[in-house]
Design a protein around this nucleic acid. Structure first.
Length: 201
DNA sequence: CGGCTGATGATCT
DNA sequence: GATCATCAGCCGG
């Protein structure tokens, strides 16, 4: 029953940020949390780049963002609106402040535990949007800087099922550089976040 | 269903 | 003091 999930090696991750953001759609995010395994298939990501006014790294290194400058495959976790943890995967080379925000998952293991942790009533809402996703996966600020390609409990896994067509769209919830096509999601997947008019494509 | 609003507190200027 | 990479709840059609 417990489906084996192979850990992704750093060498398997594309070096370029947009390529990584697309690559991660279809990959697994896994958190072995106590006796339980929480896992889901990544269905939506966003890229945050150098020279991108919407990125936390736009003004360089600050107290909260050093994890954005780690080599690709590390967690950058910060608190949004004082409440919600946001999980990103650092990208590019060490010293370059770029990252991929994980915005939505299709839960595949520990589904009910994830739904309860997220406080979601409807199953499709469990990991729909980055705030609920982090709650569902029990990701907290303590994971900031963790190596998602290492031996730890929180890691990236190889796809179990190949991703369908990837739609490119604009990012959600930002005002600066809002028109750049840096959001990626699996077409038609009901776990993708955002208003319906933004998920057809 | 879509659109709007208030809560919320860490971070940055 | 301003700014949020959000969300739940409420309202109208």
């Amino acid at each position: 029953m417990a489906m084996p999930i192979r850990r992704l090696k750093r060498s398997e991750l594309p070096r370029e940020t947009v390529a990584l953001a697309k690559f991660l759609v279809g990959c697994m995010l896994v958190h072995d949390f106590g006796a339980a395994r929480l896992a889901g298939r990544i269905v939506e990501t966003e890229a945050y780049l150098v020279g991108d006014a919407a990125s936390h790294s736009y003004r360089g290194l600050t107290r909260r963002n050093p994890s954005m400058f780690l080599a690709r495959g590390h967690a950058y976790v910060y608190i949004s609106y004082g409440v919600w943890p946001m999980l990103n995967v650092s990208s590019n080379e060490a010293g370059v402040g770029e990252a991929v925000l994980i915005r939505a998952l299709e839960p595949l293991a520990g589904i009910e535990a994830m739904r309860q942790a997220a406080g979601a009533e409807r199953p499709f809402d469990t990991a729909r949007g980055p705030g609920r996703l982090a709650r569902a996966m029990r990701v907290t600020l303590s994971h900031d800087g963790a190596d998602l390609c290492g031996p730890g409990p929180l890691f990236l896994g190889a796809p179990l099922q190949q991703a369908g067509p990837i739609v490119t769209a604009t990012r959600i919830g930002i005002t600066k550089d809002a028109d750049r096509p840096l959001r990626f999601f699996e077409r038609g997947n009901p776990h993708v976040s955002g208003p319906k008019r933004l998920i057809s494509g």
